[in-house]
Computed example of a mutant assay.
Amino acid sequence: MNCKINRNAAKEIKKMLSTEEAEGKMIRVFVTINHVDHAHYDLKLDTPTEHDEIVKTDKDIDVILDKREDFLDGVWIKYFYVPEAGFEITNPSKESHGHRH
């Protein structure tokens, strides 16, 4: 499985991972809604399970992805500061629509 993270997202994720709440946890990207031809995504702090793959990114952040969810392979995590600050998670290889939060 593959996962990309842009520079801004890496900066924000590292902030999340440095909190007390994040101790012993990693970032998980998951599908919130599957529309058959595209999916909506979110992320949270979590720990891996037996169905997960820990994906190493080029930003030195490990991301948990559920191996059973096809829409997660190739996911791209971006963070934008304008027009309003938030993450956008897409999967260009699956022609998914981005979901900003």
Score class of each variant (00 low, 15 high):
M1G: 07
N2D: 09
C3T: 06
R7Y: 01
N8G: 05
A9F: 00
A9M: 00
K11T: 12
E12V: 01
E12W: 03
I13L: 14
K15N: 07
K15G: 04
M16H: 01
M16Q: 03
L17N: 01
L17P: 01
L17G: 04
L17A: 07
S18A: 15
T19A: 06
E20I: 06
E20T: 14
E20Q: 13
E21F: 05
E21T: 10
E23P: 03
K25G: 09
M26R: 14
I27P: 14
I27D: 10
R28W: 01
R28G: 05
V29G: 09
V29E: 04
V29W: 02
F30P: 01
V31H: 08
V31N: 11
V31Y: 08
T32I: 10
I33K: 13
N34W: 04
N34L: 11
V36S: 15
V36H: 08
D37N: 15
D37Q: 13
H38C: 15
H38T: 14
L43E: 04
L45R: 11
L45I: 02
D46V: 09
D46H: 10
T47C: 11
T47G: 08
T47D: 05
T47Q: 15
T47K: 15
T49E: 11
E50S: 11
E50Y: 09
H51I: 04
D52F: 04
D52A: 11
E53M: 08
I54R: 03
I54G: 10
I54Y: 02
K56I: 05
T57F: 05
D58L: 13
D58C: 02
K59C: 08
K59G: 01
K59Y: 10
K59R: 08
D60C: 03
I61H: 05
D62M: 02
D62G: 03
D62R: 00
I64C: 12
L65A: 06
L65Q: 07
D66M: 02
D66C: 09
R68P: 00
E69A: 11
E69L: 12
D70N: 05
L72N: 09
D73S: 04
D73H: 07
G74P: 00
G74Y: 00
G74N: 02
V75F: 06
V75S: 10
W76M: 13
W76L: 14
I77Q: 04
K78F: 00
F80N: 12
F80Y: 08
F80A: 13
F80T: 08
Y81E: 15
V82G: 12
P83Y: 03
E84R: 07
A85G: 06
F87A: 06
F87M: 07
E88M: 10
N91G: 05
K94G: 04
K94M: 10
K94N: 12
E95T: 06
E95S: 14
S96Q: 02
S96G: 03
H97V: 15
H99K: 10
R100W: 03
R100F: 06
R100E: 09
H101D: 15
